[in-house]
Amino acid sequence: MNHAKASLSHVISVLSHTQTQGRFFSRTGRRVDSRDTLDRVETGRTSIVQEIDPQLDPTIHQRLLDLGFTPGTPIQVLRAAPLGDPRIYRLAGYEVALRAQQARHIVVREDS
């Protein structure tokens, strides 16, 4: 029984893998958890940029890099607008407001 359960969950995971590859897996095949994007980081916390969503339009990708969202940069979430969006982030010595729509494309890891 245990074995059957395990293989069933395996099948499900493979299926979901195939279905969501476009959204949840980066080009390198590394799993990108949806919890780990900048828009999900709580206000007040600091995280480190891991990468920018490789699927993103190349010009916007480059723009986020030019704004300082380069891999390895620490980012602190400073505050949110009264209705929750946009939010102000502090990085590279300055502060910038982004809508969740853009922050969603910045993959981060916890500051260790």
Partner: peptide, 11 residues
């Protein structure tokens, strides 16, 4: 055309 991202520096 493409959607422009919104970003604004808070000086």
């Amino acid at each position: 055309g493409a959607l422009l991202p919104f970003y604004m520096e808070i000086p």
